[in-house]
Nucleic acid binder design. Structure first.
Lengths: 184, 184
DNA sequence: GGTGGCATGTAAAAAGTTACATGATTTA
DNA sequence: TAAATCATGTAACTTTTTACATGCCACC
């Protein structure tokens, strides 16, 4: 694969790391916390994947070790090449959007279940979504969004997506349950 | 890995195939059409993946070749074991739900862009979502939903999710654009 | 006789998950 | 001094994508 082609492929974990390091230098351990705490609903990453990608990014010159600390800690900093790649991904690469929804896949096949089983399925979906909705509401209320940091400013906008998504999905499940009882 | 554990892992492509074969026997080619036409927004599958999975499913006894036709066509039928596995997945396996959204990941990093670039990003998102919304509306209007088939009955419920999702996301992008111009 | 659609497959690489593995440092 | 946390890595496997590969059959 040529260098030109290499710049066109996806790898959003890579860009998630670059985006976080654009805010401030961090270790793999630091980044893992952020992926688990802040980005878990948007781009989950495992420890294994993260450490592997950090080494690849360093090898590719998009990040570099800017400090070493106790316990083998390596603090990474974004390079100019890394900042350029982040910017390119932000403005030139069209988002893929959401795909693959195993809940909706089941919905297509609800005809294989009894009416009662289908109702239980949709009720569980409604309740699970409502639970998630309340978790997001709790985050909204607990975080200080006026702190002036970019990640908070735009994190609030991402959270709004989640709040609207969970409300939408809960209402959809309620609608589907009504339709199930009066399908025709 | 034991047989017991094997029944607990994900593999929704597998269950997408089982679900479609539960409606009626079909060849890989038939199934590929359905994945591209009906399930593309829910569970995309490539030709390569599909044919490979069909052979695995046959080997595992969840489907079987019920007829052969011209050009090497193999028509598959769901076995009892396959129907049982489909049912198990429908009622016993909790949906994973939506994860990984590379559009929202970019939103977290919008602070790295100029105000103008960030606005362009959100406008593109709004316009792209609106286009998708209109495509789904066109499907809703063109399909005969009263045909009495399960896949249509529940496909309509899945489509409703898409209609509500695209409306939600378009409205969210509009909200985000307003907030961008009056952020504080 | 050529084109388009029907029909199935393999190979290689990328991306993601789970489990295994090790060790240092801080804090109670 | 024991437990919790910090800290990084490897190995095996699964899932998904992209590209390559082949050939039959119906229709014009």
């Amino acid at each position: 694969m040529s260098m030109l082609e290499a710049t066109l492929i996806h790898m959003s974990l890579r860009h998630g790391i670059l985006g976080l390091l654009a805010e401030q230098p961090a270790s793999g351990y630091d980044l893992l916390s952020t992926f688990h705490e802040t980005l878990v609903n948007v781009w989950p990453a495992t420890q294994s994947q993260l450490y592997g990608e950090l080494n690849k990014l360093a090898k590719d010159g998009l990040i570099e070790v800017s400090a070493t600390g106790a316990r083998g800690r390596k603090e990474y900093t974004l390079t100019e090449a890394g900042a350029a790649e982040l910017h390119r991904w932000m403005v030139d690469v069209e988002p893929v959007g959401v795909a693959r929804n195993d809940m909706l896949l089941r919905v297509f096949f609800l005809g294989r279940l009894s009416r009662s089983e289908a109702r239980t399925f949709l009720e569980q979906e409604r309740d699970g979504t409502e639970k998630h909705e309340r978790q997001l509401q709790a985050i909204e209320e607990s975080v200080d969004w006026d702190m002036g940091e970019d990640l908070a400013t735009y994190g609030r906008i991402a959270l709004e997506w989640g709040l609207r998504f969970t409300r939408m999905q809960r209402e959809w499940a309620e609608w589907a349950l009504e339709r199930l009882d009066a399908p025709r």
